[in-house]
Each structure stands twice: as structure tokens, then as C-alpha cells.
Simulated assay, not measured.
Amino acid sequence: MAATNIDTTHGATEVTRWTGWIAFAAFIMMLSGALSLITGFFAVINNNWTVWNNSGAPFGTTYWWGWWTMLVGVVVIAIGGALMRGSMFARTVAVFVAAGSLLSQFISLNVAPFWSLTIIAIDLVIIWAIMMHGREMRVR
């Protein structure tokens, strides 16, 4: 019987090329957070910038939607930075933060549809990369 490089308690112990997906997810998380921060900033400084109308803001006014979006952006940037370490805690929190960011952008689709759809797509890639290949980052 041939010996394999498998640890029965933690799965495969060799690093594959898929660890690049986790680094990509961390970078994209920081990018997604930065985009959220920018759109929130524009909503705070200019209440009339939205695509269709300002009455569609999910949190009362576009001003408060902007503050909420900036808060989400800062948290997503912080977790994206922590994800580079590859710890289980950072990966778990990153999935929940990306899912929260996705839901937040889904709620605010009628305020900024293009940006919301862009960030939703980015968050889906992040969740997929972490869920499918997150364990390999620990070995690296």
C-alpha cells in the first residue's frame, strides 16, 4: 500500500495552487470594502447621487444608508487583511462578513444598482474561494 501525504484529522497537508484563490479572496475583500466605503462616502456628502431616487434608501435616508455602507466597508477591509494569515477564525469571520456584505448590498440594490451588483458578485467569489480552498491556506 503506497504512503500518501494525508493527515486523517485535517485532510490534505500539501499545498496546491488553489491557495492563490484565498489570497485573491482577501484582496478582493479589501477591494469590495473599499468600493463600499467610496459609495457610502458619496452618499453621505451628496444625497442626490443615486440612480433613480432617494426615497429607496433602505435605512430611512440616503445619508444614513451611506454611513451604514461605510461601516460595512471598514469591517470588510479589516477582515480581508486578517484573512491573509489563514487562521480558521479569520476564514470563518470572512465568510460571515462577506455574506453580510452581500445581504447589505442586496438590500440597497435600488439605491445604487450597478455598485451593488458588482459587490454582490465579488462577495460570491470570496465565499466560494474561502469555503472550497480555505484549509490549504493554513498549510502554506
Score class of each variant (00 low, 15 high):
F96H: 02
L109C: 04
A26W: 02
T4H: 13
W65R: 07
R85K: 15
T92C: 02
W128C: 01
S108A: 15
V74W: 08
L31T: 12
I38F: 10
T62G: 06
T118V: 12
V74I: 15
T50K: 06
V76E: 15
G66I: 11
F24K: 01
S116M: 01
A112V: 09
G73L: 05
I22L: 11
A99E: 06
G100L: 06
A12M: 12
A78C: 06
M70K: 12
N48F: 11
F114C: 03
F106L: 11
M137C: 02
V15H: 07
A98N: 02
P113D: 10
G60Y: 13
A99K: 03
R135C: 01
N110D: 13
V15C: 07
A3D: 13
A3R: 12
A25G: 02
W115V: 05
I107C: 07
A34S: 11
L103K: 02
L31Y: 10
T69A: 07
V95I: 15
G11P: 05
N54W: 11
M29Y: 01
I126N: 08
W49S: 00
A43C: 09
I120S: 00
V72N: 13
W115F: 02
I127M: 07
V139T: 10
M131G: 06
I28R: 03
G100R: 06
R138S: 06
I45H: 06
G60Q: 14
W49M: 09
S104M: 14
I122T: 04
G66A: 11
G134L: 03
M131L: 11
W128Y: 15
A129M: 04
S55L: 09
M84H: 09
L31N: 04
A78Q: 07
G81W: 15
F59Y: 15
T69I: 08
T13I: 14
A94F: 04
V95L: 06
S87Y: 04
F42Q: 14
R85Q: 07
V51E: 13
H10R: 13
A12H: 12
I107H: 12
G40D: 04
A121F: 04
Y63H: 12
S32A: 14
S116W: 04
N53D: 15
M88D: 14
I119T: 02
T39Y: 12
F59V: 00
A90F: 03
V51A: 12
S116G: 09
T19L: 03
T61E: 10
W68D: 10
S32V: 01
A121E: 02
A82F: 05
L102N: 01
F114H: 08
W128K: 00
I126S: 02
